[in-house]
Nucleic acid binder design. Sequence first.
DNA 1: CGTATCTCAAGAGCGGTGCTCACTAATTCG
DNA 2: CGAATTAGTGAGCACCGCTCTTGAGATACG
Lengths: 238, 238
Amino acid sequence: MTDGSVRRGRKPVISRERVLDAAADALAEGGADSISLRAIARSLGVVSSAIYRHYSSRDELLTDLIVQTYASLGEYVTLAEASVASSDTRERFAVIVRSTRAWAGQNPHRYALIYGTPIPGYRAPQSILEPAAVVGSLIARVIADAAASGATLPADPARDAAAPAFVPLAEAFGLEPELAPAVAAGVAVWSQLFGHLSFELFGHYAGVVDDVDAYTEFLIAEMSSRLGLSRPVEPGQG
Amino acid sequence: MTDGSVRRGRKPVISRERVLDAAADALAEGGADSISLRAIARSLGVVSSAIYRHYSSRDELLTDLIVQTYASLGEYVTLAEASVASSDTRERFAVIVRSTRAWAGQNPHRYALIYGTPIPGYRAPQSILEPAAVVGSLIARVIADAAASGATLPADPARDAAAPAFVPLAEAFGLEPELAPAVAAGVAVWSQLFGHLSFELFGHYAGVVDDVDAYTEFLIAEMSSRLGLSRPVEPGQG
DNA sequence: CGTATCTCAAGAGCGGTGCTCACTAATTCG
DNA sequence: CGAATTAGTGAGCACCGCTCTTGAGATACG
C-alpha cells in the first residue's frame, strides 16, 4: 500500500499506466485519431467501459499523453545536448535543433499531437504549460550561457524595441533583464524551428525543399547568428 | 446543358457545390472533425448516402475543401497586397504577413485544415501542390521585384552555400538563378511565418508572448531585413 | 466464519460516425 | 408508352465515446 488508504475490493487488471502505455502505442502507430478507448481496451484484453475506472474521459487520457510526450521529447533533446561541450553554445544549439528534428522524424504522430492542430474539443489545462516549455527552456539556457561567456547579439533595432516585452519571460527563465533582446530572438528562433519541422512533417516542403538535412543546417547557421552564437575560440590557435 | 452529354433522370436536389459549401460552413463553425457527411446531409435536408452521388468519399470532399481554402487565403492576401505601392517591397511583405495572420485569425479552423496536422487517413493528392504555394508565390514576387529594383541581401555565407539547391525553385517561380540565395531566404521566412501563426493559433504563445501584434511587427522587421527589403527612397529627400 | 462493504470489470445500450447496397422516384429518349 | 438513366431513400455494417446497471472478486469486521 503505497498510500495510507487500505486496498479493498477485487484487484485491478489494468492500471492508469497500462492504459496510458496502450494509448501511446496506438498514437505511435496510427496517430491521434486511432487513440480510441475501445481499441485501447481491446489491446488490454478488457471491455471498453473498464477504461473509465481509470480515466474519466478521452480528454483526460490525452492530457496525460501530451505531458508524457513533452517529457519524451525533453529527455531525448537533453540527452543529445549533454554530449556537447557546454562552452560550445553554437553546437549546443545545433544539437538541440537536430535532435528535436530527429525525435520528430522518429515520432511523427507524437510530434503532431503536441505541435499540430489541437485535438478537436480538447482544451489543454494549465498543467501542460510547463512541460510544453521544454525545448524553449533548453534554448534559453544556451542563450544564458552564451551571454555569460561574452557573446553579443548582432545589431537589430526592431528586436531591441520589442525586447521590453520579454523581460518577464527572461525573468521566468532566471535571466537578467539585459538579456531580454536575446530572449526575443530566442522566441523567434523557437517558433521558427517548429515551423520548419511542421512544414517538413506535414508535407509542405514537397516540391520546395528537396534536401531537408542540408536546408536544416542552413537554418541552424542563420538562427545561430541571430542568437549571437559562435564556436568557442580554440585556445592556442589563430 | 453546359457540356455535350445529355441530361437524363431526375433532377438533383443537391450539387457538389452545395455539399462543399455546407462542408465549409461546418468547418468554419466546429473544425475539421465536425465535417461529417451525416451532418452535412442533415443541413441540406437530405439523407447521408445521397452525398455519395456527388462525393465518393469524405477525403474527396476534404480535398476540394482544402483547395477552396487555399484559394480563399490567396484571394485575401492578394487583395490586401494590392493596396500597397508595388515599389514598396518592404511594406508589401509586411502586408502579406499581416493579412495572412488576419485571415488565419478570422478562419482558425480553415487555417488548421491546411497548416495543421494533416487529416488522419487523408493523403493529399498532387493537385493541391499548386494552390498550396499561394503565399510562397506572393513572397517570391516580392523578392523578384526587390531584386529588380536593386535590393541586395545581407551577407550570409550559409545561405549562399545552400542557394544552389534552390535554383530549380527559383526557376519554377520564373526567377534568375542568381536569385537563388534570396529564394533560400524566402523559404526560411515562409516557414517561419507559418510557424509563428501556428504557435499563436495553437496556443503555444500562452505565457510566452503577450502582445502578439507587436511581436509580429518585430518578426516582420527581422524577416524583411533577411530578405533585403527596405522602404523605397523618397525622391527629393535626404 | 460469515457477512457487509468496497472495487472493478462486464455487458447492454444510446447516439454518433463513414460507407455500401438494394430499391424506388423522377426524368428523358426512342 | 416503355426503356434507360439518374438521384435520393432507407436499412444495415462496423466503428466511435460514453453511461449505467449488474455481478464478480477481495478485504474488513463483527
